[in-house]
């Protein structure tokens, strides 16, 4: 590259004549991450019976997809990626494949809705309202209709209500700030809590529907008390490992950031 002399030609006014974006994210990015989600659907992770069947490794990146692409493009990418994943890798799709897809859309949207600035600063509210309604239906149905003990119901939904609390309180903004930090330990902390939170609220939304169908009895609730937090801890750990690698990598490569990226 030569710098010495100014160019001889006259400078031209450049207009962007391209229109291949969705909500500020290039189509190709959306496709690439959707394909990642699909490919990772092939890898089963472990069994969680409470929310239905095994979960695939793709769940470890749904939050990240939202943080990288923003809420709308992230939701599109995750949704289409898991939709294909459900067809191609039925062995990890769980008992309610479509629920898996809806959950992915919700998770990435919720992650992308974590914003700091003035723009879109109310987007988190519908996400939170939906999570709270789901929680009310889920736990309410268990206690009032199916006679699950109040203590057990709340113990078994620790992941759910802790995530809702984190999401509603200013902790959401704190976590977002950490994700943007240039210090790796802060990014990792943000990823850990952010992943816990995003999957927690996703879990409650899915559980409300699944519980409506399955009505598992109190004894199952009891067994879930240790399992669900453990599973979510694993997800958070996966979120930290993948997220910190990808975010530092993207900063190193200098890829053009989508308009509504959170990281």
């Amino acid at each position: 590259m030569t710098n010495a002399t100014p160019p001889k030609g006259s400078e031209r006014n450049i207009r962007s004549l391209s229109s291949t974006h969705i909500d500020g994210a290039p189509m190709a990015y959306i496709i690439a991450l959707a394909a990642v989600v699909t490919a990772l659907s092939f890898i089963p992770f472990s069994f969680i019976l409470g929310s239905g069947g095994s979960f695939p490794l793709s769940q470890g990146v749904l939050g990240l997809v939202g943080w990288v692409l923003g809420p709308v493009a992230g939701a599109v990418s995750s949704g289409i990626g898991s939709l294909l994943g459900v067809f191609l890798a039925p062995h990890t799709a769980g008992p309610l494949p479509l629920m898996r897809v809806v959950g992915s859309v919700y998770a990435s949207f919720a992650a992308g809705a974590m914003v700091l600035g003035q723009k879109r600063r109310y987007w988190w509210i519908p996400v939170a309202v939906y999570a709270m309604l789901s929680f009310a239906y889920f736990v309410g149905r268990a206690i009032l209709l199916n006679g699950v003990g109040v203590g057990i119901a709340f113990a078994a939904t620790f992941v759910d209500w802790s995530a809702i609390v984190l999401f509603i309180l200013p902790t959401r903004k704190l976590i977002t700030g950490w994700l943007r930090s240039s210090k790796l330990p802060q990014v990792m902390l943000g990823l850990a809590l952010g992943t816990w939170m995003i999957y927690g609220i996703t879990h409650v939304c899915q559980s409300a529907v699944i519980y409506h169908l399955q009505n598992y009895p109190e004894e199952v609730w009891a067994t879930l008390i240790p399992i669900i937090p453990f599973e979510n801890l694993v997800r958070a750990a996966v979120g930290v490992v993948i997220g910190s690698g990808v975010i530092t990598g993207l900063r190193a490569v200098g890829l053009i950031k989508p308009e509504h990226a959170v990281f």
Binding site: P7, G9, I14, S18
Partner: peptide, 8 residues
């Protein structure tokens, strides 16, 4: 058109 930058 896609990459932006300066063109002469």
């Amino acid at each position: 058109q896609f990459f932006g930058g300066r063109f002469f």
